[in-house]
């Protein structure tokens, strides 16, 4: 399996667990790209080792999470300056296992067109399914995929929403396995709430998804914020596990895209340009997975 680990994937910081989860679970064993690892917590912070070679892996604490990487010198982690804004509320939603490629999870997260069908009454409604044309750009300075000017009518866009609203979205793929959504805040005019997903590949077609929220919301209880997000993610999960192939196709022709899929097309092209193999159909002659 690990011979499919390309250098771009190896050099990424990957989420291990949120800070509270480390305190609660450590020491524990888990997987990172099919490699068994052990996560311990000591007075000087978390330590992570490969169980196959005994090698110590780099550890980073940022954005309320503990990160690690297979490469001893990973690329710098992406910047989210909103984490430094006083008054925002950070809610990690806890890991959820999904039996598909981490890249499929990111692609699904970027997809506006599925809202009315998978999240009816919450993120979309079957009477308003149109995806308004939006712009997709590769930001060369940070090497990220962005989709901007996305608009969609949503019956209940956020936990704090009291009525349906036309919501503006911006999507950002910050890493192959990390994406951030910026969405009109119902709690603060002119501001965006952030929802992110960080995905740790356990195997090529199994992963652990950590969703987080960073919002302007003083009204909602922690419980209702969490359950709002968990309900949405579990609606996606059953679709994701039934989507074939589980590996993400990067070559044209396997799946027919529509105009609403512009972000997905850009994401796949960006992965292909970086030579990403892990979690994709690349190098697999006949995909039956």
């Amino acid at each position: 399996m690990t011979d499919r680990l390309d250098s771009f994937t190896r050099s990424q910081w990957i989420v291990i667990e949120d800070d509270a989860g480390i305190v609660r679970r450590a020491p524990f064993e888990t997987l990172l790209f099919s490699i068994p690892i052990r996560v311990a917590n000591g007075p000087d912070g978390p330590r992570i080792h490969r169980l196959d070679t005994g090698e110590a892996l780099p550890v980073l604490r940022r954005y309320g999470y503990v990160w690690s990487a297979l490469d001893p010198a990973p690329r710098p982690l992406f910047e989210v300056p909103e984490f430094d804004e006083a008054g925002r509320r950070f809610t990690p939603c806890g890991p959820v296992g999904v039996k598909t490629s981490a890249l499929r999870v990111i692609e699904n997260f970027l997809d506006l067109a599925h809202f009315p069908f998978v999240h009816p009454g919450i993120l979309g409604t079957e009477s308003e399914t149109e995806v308004i044309p939006y712009r997709v750009e590769i930001r060369r300075d940070v090497d990220e995929v962005w989709a901007v000017d996305c608009g969609f009518f949503q019956p209940k866009a956020m936990a704090a929403s009291s009525a349906g609203a036309q919501v503006e979205y911006r999507y950002r793929v910050a890493q192959p396995c990390s994406a951030v959504l910026y969405k009109t805040s119902p709690g603060r005019a002119g501001a965006f709430d952030l929802i992110g997903i960080l995905v740790r590949p356990l195997h090529e077609t199994a992963c652990e998804v950590h969703a987080w929220m960073l919002m302007w919301d003083e009204e909602s209880s922690d419980e209702s914020l969490l359950q709002f997000q968990q309900e949405i993610f579990l609606q996606d999960r059953i679709i994701l596990e039934n989507q074939i192939p589980h590996l993400l196709p990067l070559s044209a022709g396997m799946e027919i895209p529509t105009r609403a899929d512009a972000t997905s097309i850009a994401y796949r092209r960006w992965l292909k340009n970086h030579g990403v193999i892990w979690g994709t159909c690349e190098g697999i002659p006949e995909v039956t997975a």
Binding site: D18, A20, G21, P92, C93, G94, P95, S221, D222, E223, S224, L226, Q227, Q230
Partner: peptide
Amino acid sequence: RPVDMYPG
């Protein structure tokens, strides 16, 4: 009345 069964 939601209870934070997970992750809390």
